[in-house]
Design a protein around this nucleic acid. Structure first.
Length: 471
RNA sequence: CGGGGAGUAGCGCAGUGGUAGCGCACCUGCUUUGGGAGCAGGAGGUCGCGGGUUCGAAUCCCGUCUCCCCGACCA
């Protein structure tokens, strides 16, 4: 009867709670090789929603999808010095193929800058070929010693965009457009997670980038999660791979590039930003099942009425599932849907029909209220809209309450034990960032004084450092 | 790589030399179904692997493999 023992409570042990939810909501489980992950059908359906939303936005920005090989010649990685140095500790290298030792080992892509830029070098001849805007949806492998489902796995799924531009300004503008118009908006409007958009410090910068822009979200335990990055790559890869074009004056120029990605880590963000002790709380915009119509008991026409309601809701454009199982108790089915985070539940039983109503339950608030049968579609739509903004508002209020302004490294470390610390970056001086790292915290990003995206030209020491513990 | 643990049913665990067990999950039947139902019956294990000691090993000894936790990098 008690539903309290379904999950470890967040307060008791947040990491354990996370593991419990991922397992019991049937999102994912570990694969046979350490660090690998089986994404289960329900988890994958959420990822598919994310993909659809992100893909639509990427295409709206003028980017085309393509696909590049999983295997990359090892020599490609070596062409950009900082890039190979950054990735070599986590590379999976294939040394045998077809029963023979390979003449040149191939690496399983940890990211695709090198192999994509080899193509770009062939495709780009003239300024008329620019900008070149390409994205791919793919799996990548980065060998992980301490894996956690969705957050850090050896193999993960992502989208990686790669672009080439005629000027540094064009490249920078595009990197920032992706960050703000695609990532920040997707995360806040669809995932209902408020994020801080800022610049990475040199220490946290992507291997091979000149500037890394990031979006950082706060999880319910006060820790930060990097949710997406957009890099300015400068001309490093262009020089390494000979990506040149003739400008309007007939002069040979190297292109300026960007790359940017979000991964299945977003699944972890979704779980940890909204979930509570009863399970997931999915924002309606991303929920595979927005409304579940639950038949309490099928007697006295309740089953038929529920099925009709489900059709009505689907016709009204909602993603609906009818749960008419009679071989499982009501309580078990309720707990199951709470674990899976369905935003709205419509309960229909004989007792309700006698009163001409159904029960509408909002997952985000745990409120249950009767709704006249002929108004269910209208009420469900309203509840979905309300839940979407309520989840965002709650997450934002939580972050604001757990963010404090500090004026020194020590107070920043203290504040980071429970949330974000805003520290004038000039106060970090030489050893500040190291001191933070030794204490288990880090500079998640640099933002302007009002916590908005900083102007690219502002020197780091004039910005505000967001300090937190991070996943 | 340094330190600390663990390998027994799908999952979680108990079992210090004498017939392989418990909870959950699973199967069958009946009663149930308005917040993880009850009863009865049932299926499921080369006890990580190899060797040794012993009348007899999940248990003791030797070896070996794997996994997990804590310390440096990463979407």
């Amino acid at each position: 009867m008690a539903s309290s023992s379904v999950l470890t409570s967040q307060e008791e042990d947040f990491p354990r709670w996370y593991q419990d939810v991922v397992a019991k909501a049937e999102l994912a489980e570990g694969g046979p090789v350490r660090g690998t992950m089986v994404i289960r059908p329900y988890g994958y359906s959420i990822w598919e929603q994310m993909q659809a939303e992100i893909d639509r936005r990427i295409k709206a920005a003028g980017v085309s999808n393509a696909y590049f090989p999983l295997f990359i010649p090892e020599s490609y990685l070596r062409r950009e010095a900082e890039h190979v140095e950054g990735f070599s500790p986590e590379l999976a290298v294939v040394t045998h193929g077809g029963g023979k030792v390979l003449e040149e080992p191939v690496v399983v892509r940890p990211t695709s800058e090198t192999i994509i830029n080899a193509s770009f070098a062939k495709w780009i001849q003239s300024y008329r070929d620019l900008p070149l805007l390409v994205n791919q949806w793919a799996n990548v492998v980065r060998w992980e010693l301490r894996p956690r489902l969705f957050l850090r796995t050896t193999e993960f799924l992502w989208q990686e965009g790669h672009t080439a531009h005629a000027s540094e300004d064009d490249a920078r503008a595009f990197a920032l457009e992706v960050l703000e118009s695609i990532y920040v908006r997707f995360m806040s409007e669809v995932l209902a997670i408020p994020v801080l958009a800022g610049r990475k410090t040199d220490r946290e910068r992507f291997a091979g980038a000149t500037t890394t822009w990031t979006t950082e979200g706060m999880m319910r335990d006060g820790k930060a999660l990097q949710m997406g990055t957009s890099h300015e790559l400068g001309q490093g890869f262009a020089r390494a791979f000979g990506i040149t074009y003739l400008d309007e004056g007939g002069l040979e120029q190297h292109v300026w590039q960007t790359s940017w990605g979000v991964s299945t880590r977003l699944m972890g963000a979704l779980v940890m930003a909204h979930g509570d002790d009863a399970g997931l709380r999915l924002p309606p915009a991303i929920a595979p099942v927005q409304v579940v119509v639950l038949v309490v008991r099928s007697e006295d026409g309740a089953g038929d009425r529920a099925a009709a309601l489900a059709r009505e809701l689907a016709d009204a454009g909602m993603r609906v599932e009818l749960d008419a199982r009679t071989d499982t108790s009501f309580g078990r089915r309720v707990v199951g849907w709470e674990l899976k985070g369905a935003p709205v539940r419509i309960e229909v039983g004989p007792r309700d029909l006698l009163k001409g109503e159904a029960q509408l339950v909002r997952r985000d608030l745990s409120t249950k209220e009767p709704v006249p049968l002929d108004q269910v579609a209208h009420s469900a739509r309203q509840a979905l809209d309300a839940a979407q903004s309520a989840l965002y508002d709650e997450a934002l209020a939580r972050r604001q309450a757990a963010t404090s302004e500090v004026t020194g490294v020590e107070p920043a470390i203290e504040a980071a034990t429970s949330g974000f610390a805003l520290l004038p970056a000039g106060l970090l001086r030489s050893g500040g960032e190291t001191q933070l790292n030794e204490a288990g915290a880090s500079v998640r990003c640099l933002v302007s004084a009002d916590s908005t995206l900083p102007d690219p030209s502002t020197p780091p020491e004039d910005l505000t450092a967001v300090v937190a513990r991070a996943y």
